[in-house]
């Protein structure tokens, strides 16, 4: 435990942010701000308070304390899997990564599965995407299927054991009826590192469920 105190309501604020920015995106914002104000002790306190409840934030804060810093989001390796793809359904939410992809591939039509375990104001989430992203529900995804369509899912965790952690939206969507209606099923691992705590909110899935897997 550290002696640094952080504002009351931190967990509630983080929960809201994680719902609309993504677990990693929200953790970056919080860790950046806390580090600027309270230094590494503040980041360690953040981890103590929130880590067990928000495993991505825990891992990200841990990496921060080891010297890692968020950088520019690279998209070239993802774009390589989008050759011939006109429409993309995104599952899970990491707003910084989604923004980077929106900017990197202007011709791509993008839909976001507006469903997650954390509550989110999806109108607000979509409004942040500059008119480039459409919200879809689980049925609506089939309207985006086709031979030139792909699904991209944000995933987390070390893939060394042949598995990664995916948001529950992937489990709802990922089935034999959907798999063969999309040319590619791309995993974008935004936190390719082992979890130190139980990764609640996410579910262990096989890397081989995806046709391509790329680290952030």
């Amino acid at each position: 435990m550290t002696s640094v105190t952080l504002p009351l309501g931190l967990a509630q604020a983080f929960r809201t942010a994680a719902g609309e920015l993504g677990h990693a995106g929200a953790a970056e914002v919080f860790v950046n701000e806390i580090a600027a104000d309270r230094g590494d002790d503040g980041v360690a306190a953040f981890r103590d308070i929130l880590g067990r409840d928000f495993p991505v934030a825990d891992a990200l804060a841990g990496r921060w304390l080891e010297g890692w810093r968020p950088g520019i989001i690279e998209t070239d390796h993802i774009r390589r899997h989008l050759d011939g793809i006109r429409r993309l359904v995104v599952v899970g939410l990491e707003s910084r990564h989604l923004d980077a992809l929106v900017d990197a591939v202007p011709s791509l039509e993008i839909a976001l599965l507006a469903w997650s375990a954390l509550p989110a104001d999806w109108d607000r989430v979509i409004a942040n995407c500059g008119g480039r992203v459409t919200a879809v529900d689980l049925d609506g995804i089939f309207g985006w299927a086709g031979p030139n369509s792909a699904v991209l899912c944000f995933v987390y965790g070390s893939a060394d054991g042949g598995t990664v952690y995916a948001p529950p939206g992937w489990l709802r969507l990922h089935g034999p009826d959907m798999r063969l209606q999309f040319r590619a099923l791309i995993g974008w691992n935004v936190l390719p590192a082992p979890f130190a705590v139980y990764p609640r909110w996410f579910h262990e899935v096989q890397v081989s469920d995806f046709t391509a897997m790329e680290d952030a």
Binding site: D83, P147, L180, R183, A184, T211
Partner: peptide, 13 residues
């Protein structure tokens, strides 16, 4: 790319 998709459809799923 289409061929890869079809190969997956036939022997990958």
């Amino acid at each position: 790319g289409e061929r890869t998709f079809l190969v997956r459809c036939i022997i990958g799923e």
